[in-house]
Nucleic acid binder design. Structure first.
Lengths: 260, 260
DNA sequence: ATCTATTCCGTAAATTTTACACATTAGAAT
DNA sequence: ATTCTAATGTGTAAAATTTACGGAATAGAT
């Protein structure tokens, strides 16, 4: 648990360590129970659900900051992480009321409120991450005391402009899936065809013919069939597949180019 | 011309009007002489070429700021303007030397240098704009005293990390052209098939079969043939075309979706 | 041995993309 | 008027890709 002193110090002096006016919001996608989910945190001060986020240290490269922020929440490193948009159209994301609630909650002196760096206008750089749900261990930060993995089709009202952020992350991911291989980071190392098929259907929110789908992935050389099978109860055992790392990485870099 | 006082005031007090630590860099694409060009400005202080840029006013929505910055330089409003990346990996874009040159050039007291907001670490949000070259009237700002339209295939060494910014803008534009119609903002209202054909070839940096190309645009319903022709000297007169605004806008929103 | 639920596979039709060459035309020159 | 030049405009066949679609095989439970 984080101490009261630490919180107070962060609020009062955080601007010496972090760049003010800019934050990072992360949309962390995981796949579980045949649902595409995102990680939501319950913010103590504001008492509501929001995205994991954080600030950029004064001498820290931007990409590293995003990586650190996701790592601190999930325990994962070396993940698929991509900038997708900067949100800054509403000059002020915090209402006076929410600031008051926050300072009361943390028992901060009223004078902290005035012009405090935390409560000034802050643009937010959106990153999304694709993670292997089963490998995540969620850790709370200063301002959050609970978490949930929430089906993207069923997102509640979030704090600030986080619903917009999620929306934009989803549309970016859906567009991207047509041009880049997705799955390496969302699936375990070995998976079955029906599994990756359902993943794609889930992300795109529409049905894909299973025969044509697997044909496509195999033709592109993105996955390869293994000799092993998985046992799934009283049904035919599906074969296991894994990604062809080289072809996958190549497609990641080049994109899967369609024609003009 | 901008007065010395104004510059000094901007350097000393700009942080009261603008958000520190964040700027906008704009890559303004125009098409002329069968070349894709970008607008470069010569920075007085640093004596080198760089991109048009600016800061975000404290209460100004982000998109508006980008729009204003491009408008101030080009005179154009209501243009195609798109965020494409945030640059912030190198914590410091300015060297001590360039800062000294700058302050000397503008005859700023040495004490201005120390911890001045302008010289602190600044992330930069990249926007690119597509403009009708012939409609642009370039206006200088505080820090720049000359401009040029520079062929994208022949960009000199630019200030700061602006070469990276241009590079990324170009790759984004090239990717986008496969999924969204481009041209409405780069071409005059009426244009010939060879003109738009050359535009696409120029942007993509490769040849496109003219028959297949026009077939595609017409099939997609993005352009329509007019009854008029243009006179181009001692050659067959090409027909004029114009964009089908509805289909064009629809494609802009939806993207030209390819299959899975 | 039977049943259930799931995986696995292949082919034909439709569509899209690619490749490719020559007749037409406006104005300039003669 | 004729000729010449340099550019525009157009169609078709082959190849590749995408789509649509149904039935046999299998593992485990009963």
């Amino acid at each position: 648990m984080i101490s009261q002193e630490e919180v107070t110090d962060f609020v009062k002096n955080g601007h010496q360590h972090y760049l003010p006016h800019i934050s990072i919001d992360s949309v962390i996608f995981g796949y579980h129970d045949q649902q595409l989910k995102i990680l939501l945190l319950n913010w103590i001060g504001y008492n509501g659900w929001g995205l994991p986020g954080g600030f950029i240290q004064r001498r820290e490269p931007l990409g590293q900051a995003a990586n650190r922020i996701v790592r601190e929440r999930t325990g994962l490193d070396d993940l698929f992480l991509q900038q997708f948009y900067v949100f800054g159209d509403s000059p002020y994301r915090l209402t006076e009321r929410s600031i008051r609630e926050f300072t009361e909650k943390f028992d901060l002196a009223a004078d902290v409120e005035e012009g405090n760096w935390l409560f000034e206008r802050t643009l937010s750089i959106g990153y999304f991450a694709l993670v292997d749900y089963s490998k995540v261990t969620v850790t709370s930060d200063f301002f959050t005391d609970a978490h949930q993995w929430c089906d993207v089709n069923n997102i509640p009202d979030l704090l600030f402009d986080h619903n917009d952020v999620v929306e934009k992350a989803l549309t970016t991911l859906r567009q991207q899936i047509y041009h880049q291989p997705i799955g390496y980071n969302l699936l375990p190392e070995k998976f079955t065809l029906p599994e990756i098929h359902r993943l794609y259907e889930t992300i795109l929110g529409k049905e894909l013919d299973p025969r044509n789908f697997s044909k496509k992935l195999l033709t592109l050389g993105l996955i390869k069939k293994l000799d092993e099978q998985r046992s799934i109860g009283p049904h035919r055992s599906p074969y296991l597949y894994q990604f062809e790392k080289e072809a996958y990485d190549f497609a990641l870099r080049q994109g899967i180019v369609h024609t003009y």
